[in-house]
Design a protein around this nucleic acid. Structure first.
Lengths: 370, 370
DNA sequence: TTGTACGCGTTATCAA
DNA sequence: TTGATAACGCGTACAA
């Protein structure tokens, strides 16, 4: 990095060819005679030449990059407070707390992984961004200017800004319902999954007094799941709560707060099941119930939604609805590239199937797998 | 996206200003008179104008993006085989297998999260790439051409190619030792952590017949951990295995295979502790030991390394060494930006402290936290 | 198979 | 405070 970064011109000159040939060397090597190809290749190595993505993007009018935008549930301030690299080289301590939260959102991590895989398959790079803080708009605008298309999780981008940038690049929304908007959507069958799960609690486990723990007010997914819950209750002829018994913020820490609140106010008495809007909330609540001596599922059934790995190894293991997270990401990118190729087709909505996973937190099951 | 994407020229013309003023509107709004600023802003909104990142990058000679490169342990082919969006809308099944592996690597996810946070704090975007498959070189080259600097996990990039691209942009390596190379490094105290953990097994739990389960042959971290293990054994005057009793590939699935192998060949008899090179391997082995009726830690102690969340909720909870994964990512980016500002300083190596977490898989502890 | 020449959409430097 | 204009590094017709 001491040297001035070489350009096509430098390579061309040293190899005794034109810049067009250097360009061909990278984009279409077969169109270059072998002897020239070797000569160019040698110079490229000697000079440490790497083509400029900016110049390429400008000239070709496409960046070969897809953007992925997602909301942040992590507490950056708290992480920020942790001084970088502080602490002794090795610290040894007995760790008795099974309930720490790393703060990472597995659901998002899996979706992002899916986008990366599909992008990779098509030779695209992935640029990620989290619009948080005061500069959220700049983050999104910067991203939109640098990519050929954008995948965004619901609620990550301000709707007005989304409308603005979608005039420049196609946008695919992951999760969240279409409310008359014009974007492509990829989502999972939240409604059906929640109906089936709730129905299972009612039909198989004979639970009648169920309550719902909601998510953030503005989460369409949480809303749809609540509707699925009430629908199943209605169909079974049971009394339907008008609203969630509590709301959590989709984090495990938030779930624990909710759990403490419900316990402290004795609002769980007479309830035989707690249907939660997502896994992390359910796990947080589970933490507190266990700590308080409430037996799950004997005293109270608890269920989640998403199917993150943590739900599979909790004690008790959490019954939940698994969303195909990696596939959501993959399909979003696939749809994005499709639209890049065919801009004028109608906006599409793709609803992926879900899987109700019956484990231990909702009650006992026969051990035979159908 | 029907409309032709507008440029500075379009905005300038409609607002009755020069392109320079439009550029100022974005880069230094205060240098524009308020009345003109409003006029330009209005046109920007009307037109749906978003500045081109490629053009910016070309003109400014910096992209405002950092690249993050990491290896892939996921089996893309298997994921690929899963047909996109296949399956019924809702499937219900009893899920008795507590040992599924989602395939996601939490360690990497956390490091990436750290890079994103630090990049965000400095107004940088993050581009991720996984050099896998035949086109691995292209992936890396494309990334290198599109970013101002690169953070890479050890082993993600072919050394020759790394040397090549590092002539264009600064590179910071995460994990892995410096072997006389010229990059900045950010790593954790693998050696010290493993010494302390092994010493704990020997001193506190009086274990004498320990074996080490290694990682991939080419993983320097795995190698260093093995050395830490042998060092502690030596210091205690115990017999030192010349090599790991087995090697796993850092995945849980691989760990299970290793576990089955060791059980089938009865190579665990006479052993009282299994020190594993990382958490995922340890968890996989734990899965198999539990299934085979081996009691951990009574019959056999097992330990991991990394401190991923899964290690905290396994049964039994896994004693391990926690690396500060988010901080590794953050510090890597911080160092990258520092070098971008000061290119000529000496390559630095930063070793972050680790934490030995004593939980249940190594034996009982007093419940007091020091 | 190779070369010429123009355009891509910004930033930044000077002048005005 | 604003404008004219020269880079920036590459892709790509088109021509040779």
């Amino acid at each position: 990095m001491v040297e001035k970064t070489p350009t096509v011109y430098d390579v061309a000159e040293m190899a005794g060819v034109s810049i067009a040939t250097v360009s061909r060397y990278f984009r279409n090597p077969d169109a270059v005679r072998e002897s020239t190809r070797e000569r160019v290749g040698q110079v490229v190595r000697d000079l440490g030449y790497v083509p400029s993505g900016s110049a390429r993007g400008l000239a070709a009018r496409r960046t070969g990059t897809v953007g992925v935008c997602f909301p942040s549930f992590d507490d950056v301030d708290r992480i920020d407070a942790r001084r970088l690299g502080a602490g002794p080289p090795v610290r040894v301590r007995v760790d008795t707390d099974a309930h720490q939260d790393t703060g990472s959102d597995l659901y998002i991590a899996e979706v992002v992984r899916g986008t990366e895989i599909e992008a990779w398959r098509h030779g695209f790079a992935v640029m990620i961004a989290v619009p948080r803080g005061a500069a959220a708009h700049n983050v999104v605008e910067g991203l939109a200017g640098r990519v050929d298309g954008l995948v965004t999780l619901a609620r990550a981008i301000d709707p007005d800004q989304l409308a603005h940038i979608s005039r420049r690049i196609p946008v695919v929304m992951v999760a969240g319902p279409r409310d008359g908007d014009v974007y492509d959507h990829v989502t999972a069958n939240n409604h059906g999954g929640m109906v089936a799960l709730t129905d299972h609690l009612i039909t198989e486990h004979r639970l009648t007094r169920l309550e719902f723990v909601g998510g953030p007010e503005d989460s369409p997914d949480a809303q749809v799941r609540f509707e699925g819950f009430t629908e199943a209750m209605l169909l079974a002829g049971l009394g339907v709560p008008e609203r969630p018994i509590a709301r959590s913020d989709f984090t495990r820490v938030g779930g624990r707060e909710t759990g403490r609140l419900l316990l402290a106010e004795r609002r769980l008495e007479g309830i035989d099941g707690l249907v939660c809007a997502n896994d992390q909330s359910a796990l947080g609540i589970l933490d507190e119930l266990t700590a308080a001596g409430v037996r799950v599922p004997q005293d109270l059934a608890v269920t989640g939604f998403d199917g993150i790995e943590a739900s599979n190894v909790s004690t008790p293991r959490l019954s939940t609805v698994r969303q195909p997270m990696v596939e959501l990401g993959r399909l979003a990118v696939a749809q994005l590239l499709r639209r890049l190729a065919e801009p004028m087709t109608e906006p599409s909505t793709r609803v992926l199937g879900v899987e109700v996973l019956l484990r231990d937190s909702c009650g006992a099951h026969a051990t035979s797998t159908p």
